[in-house]
Simulated assay, not measured.
Amino acid sequence: MVRALRVTRTRAGLIGLAACVAAGAGFLSGAGGQRPAPRAAPAPPPSAAAPRVPAPTLSAAPAPPGLPVIDYWTAPRGFPADPQASSRTALTEGLHPARSIPVYDAPGGRPRARLTPEISGMPLVLPIAARRAGWVAVLLPTANRRIGWLPPKGWSSRPLRDHLIVQRRAHRLTWRRDGVRRAVWSVSTGTAATPTPLGRGFVLGRTPTSGAIYGGLDALALSTVPDDRQSLPAGLRTAHTGIHAWYRSDAFGRSASNGCVRLPRAAQRMLLKHIPHGTVVTVVD
């Protein structure tokens, strides 16, 4: 664990096709010496389509004072479940809070907590999972498989190119960039008693490690936390799941960790070089 152009068949298109066929039939009749049939009057142009009116944006209720802040250790209850927690579809856009902003339990719903620009010194980038009525749903940190809703102001957009997929039973980590597989590694995942949390999470940032067992490399701290904190030693119960190097190669391909994903040093170096804040990490069985 880590502590700290689709073309549609419109009515206008069908009218145009019918006129073309009628004209061709008249030409073919004339080719046989017959008097050409009188040409039909052209069809009137279709009326202009009505302009699309965007759906109105639901207003945001004012946030009351004293809302709890989602930080590295705690996340308030009351947020809805991620409806696509096990989806392997990449999320390609994230957001960065420009200031402390309230997060709601639904578009136009109740504000339940606040998000800040950083968590434990790491700039916060939240993957956007859905959009509705001008609002965006984001994956939440420190709240496994939960989403929160934000109105359209108070944040800036960030592109997301990468996606990490962890398969627990196969003990495999796949790195994709722009939908293309870049690398696959055999890894170690959590034991039956301390499993790696399932579902979609994301990279909070990198954090230092101590001890030769981590290969002298930083870890990637994830947004997810143990599903059962009591199954862990007391010193790890407030920790986050991480991706980090491991000193023993015989650990890979096994369920052997406290929930973190352990991988070879060369693989960790590559991830540290290329994987930014906000990258989605999907853990599946």
Rank of each mutant, 00 (worst) to 15 (best):
M1N: 00
M1Q: 00
V2A: 14
R6Y: 11
V7M: 09
R9H: 12
T10S: 15
T10V: 03
A12W: 05
G13T: 10
V21W: 09
V21I: 14
V21K: 07
A22Y: 01
G24N: 02
A25Y: 04
A25Q: 09
G26Y: 01
L28F: 11
S29Q: 15
G30Y: 08
R35W: 03
A41F: 00
A43I: 05
P46E: 10
A49L: 13
P54Y: 02
P54A: 13
P56F: 10
T57D: 05
P62L: 06
A63W: 06
L67I: 04
D71C: 05
Y72W: 11
W73K: 13
R77N: 12
G78S: 09
A81R: 15
D82N: 11
D82Q: 11
D82A: 11
P83G: 10
Q84H: 15
T89K: 10
A90Q: 13
E93I: 05
E93H: 06
L95I: 15
L95T: 05
P97Y: 06
A98N: 14
R99P: 01
R99L: 11
D105K: 08
G109Q: 06
R110P: 01
P111G: 07
R112M: 13
R114N: 11
P117E: 13
S120C: 02
G121F: 07
M122A: 10
P123Q: 10
L124E: 07
V125M: 07
V125T: 15
L126A: 04
L126M: 08
A129L: 11
A130D: 15
R131L: 01
A133M: 08
G134S: 01
P141D: 08
T142C: 10
R145A: 15
R146D: 08
R146P: 03
G148R: 03
W149N: 10
P152L: 10
P152D: 15
W155K: 09
S156M: 04
V166Y: 10
Q167D: 15
R169D: 14
A170R: 15
L173W: 06
W175D: 07
R176W: 13
D178V: 04
D178W: 07
G179M: 03
G179E: 08
R181L: 07
V184G: 01
W185Q: 14
W185P: 06
S188N: 07
S188P: 00
T191G: 09
A192C: 00
A193G: 14
P195R: 13
P197C: 08
R200C: 09
V203F: 01
V203L: 02
R206M: 01
T207V: 13
S210Y: 04
I213K: 09
I213F: 07
G216Y: 06
D218P: 03
A219Q: 06
A221P: 04
T224I: 00
V225D: 03
P226K: 11
D227H: 07
D228H: 14
D228F: 09
D228C: 09
S231M: 12
G235D: 12
T238L: 12
A239T: 04
T241Q: 13
G242D: 03
A245T: 07
A245Q: 08
S249C: 00
D250L: 02
R254V: 07
G259N: 03
R262P: 02
L263A: 14
L263R: 07
P264N: 14
A266C: 01
A266P: 03
A267H: 09
Q268C: 02
Q268V: 02
R269F: 01
L271H: 09
L271G: 05
K273E: 12
G278C: 02
T279W: 06
T282L: 00
V283E: 04
V283D: 02
